[in-house]
């Protein structure tokens, strides 16, 4: 039976954001963290310290220069597994040591293919419905 997940938005300094727990897996290592679900981001992006912890030689992968409101940064495309609850997803993600925002961003690639995603801002809830 497909999963239906709901997450309360998290409060940060009086504002509420769709931040959810996720687990990253690569090379036999696991990293439990949380990420801001960003429907405007093509790719998930993580601080390069996480790649180091997972034992990824992330700089050997393809380099790209994604753009955001803060301008361009250098990032590297790597493939890892992301788990949301019991759903494990093989994803292309970006690692960057120039990503200064202290949020993990969970973008569309891999994630939005696997779930229907509903942002309920009035109720401050995020719903993920697993696609089968």
């Amino acid at each position: 039976m497909p999963l239906s997940l709901s997450f309360d938005y998290e409060e940060i300094a009086g504002n509420f954001y769709p931040i959810i727990p996720i687990e990253l897996k690569a090379k036999g290592k696991r990293f439990l963290t949380r990420a801001y679900v960003d429907s405007g981001a093509n790719f998930s992006i993580f601080n390069a310290e996480i790649a180091d912890y997972l034992g990824l030689d992330y700089r050997k992968r393809d380099k790209i220069y994604p753009s955001g409101v803060g301008g361009h940064i250098c990032a590297y495309i790597n493939e890892i597994f992301i788990s949301i609850h019991d759903v494990e997803i093989h994803c292309k993600v970006l690692f960057s040591d120039e990503f200064m925002v202290k949020f993990n961003l969970l973008g569309r690639a891999g994630i939005f293919d696997r779930f229907r995603v509903c942002f309920d801002d009035p109720e401050k809830k995020l719903y993920l419905y697993e696609k089968v």
Partner: peptide, 17 residues
């Protein structure tokens, strides 16, 4: 990482390749 309070206002990242 715990964000800085002022940092939450720049969460309008739109990554395009």
């Amino acid at each position: 990482q715990v964000p800085l309070e002022e940092e939450v206002y720049i969460l309008a990242f739109v990554f395009e390749l």
